[in-house]
Amino acid sequence: MNTWANIKTIAKRELGAYFTSPLAYVFIVIFLLLSGVFTFVFGGFFEREQAALGQSFFDWHPWFYLFLVPAVGMRLWAEERRVGTLELLLTMPVTPWQAILGKFLASWLFLALALALTFPVVISVNYLGAPDNGVIFCAYVGSWLMAGAYLAISCITSALTRTQVVSFIVSVVLCLALVLAGVPGVLKAISGVFGTATVDMVSSCSFLTHFGGFQKGVLDSRDIIFFLSVIGFSLFSTSVILRGHRS
């Protein structure tokens, strides 16, 4: 009871912080612009002549998130440490876990909002044809879960440093590795050197591989567990790093 109240209070503050700075608006505008441009221009939405979003729209998400999510997550802890409010927050009657969850959930909700604002794409495709809305919903869920995984990795890098820029760069690199692990060209190179067994292992770590199922409308528990465990592990690492700073 008290736990949730604390998490809610922290999340509310954090969410408010996004909207008092221009960051939230800049982020949403860029995200929506990119989504629009890539879906309709590069994604070949019309040329496909299919009432679906699987490829034209959702294919781009892992690549947008690669740069946009670290920008949302970079300030979470780095800013607290730079300004010194971390000392204030952690001497309040809250546990470090409540603080970590509160902050993560606030950013994740913010990403959910940005994702929800892409609804005109869904309306368009429904206007133009009769898509399978179940598949679209499923892909949205997958996209949001994947965004959470990117975000949790940004939490780690943000806790590692006082400088937001460093946090941003490190998390882009880490996330890039997790995306590239699923790119066919990369996998081909790996199979050439290490053999096919390694390829399966590497690709099973990739965001692309696990997001693929959602795009096709398959809610596979393994994919859900994959993203949730990336989030869980990253938040746990964040707590270890935060404890490390203090001792």
Binding site: T9, R13, G16, A17, S21, V83, T85, L88, M92, P93
Partner: peptide, 28 residues
Amino acid sequence: IGYLPENAPAYTDMTVSGFLNFCAEIRG
């Protein structure tokens, strides 16, 4: 405990009122 850390940190993106309300809320 009530604690005033060295250099008196406060959330720079909040108003004074917002900050104090947040602190009161987290104190239950």
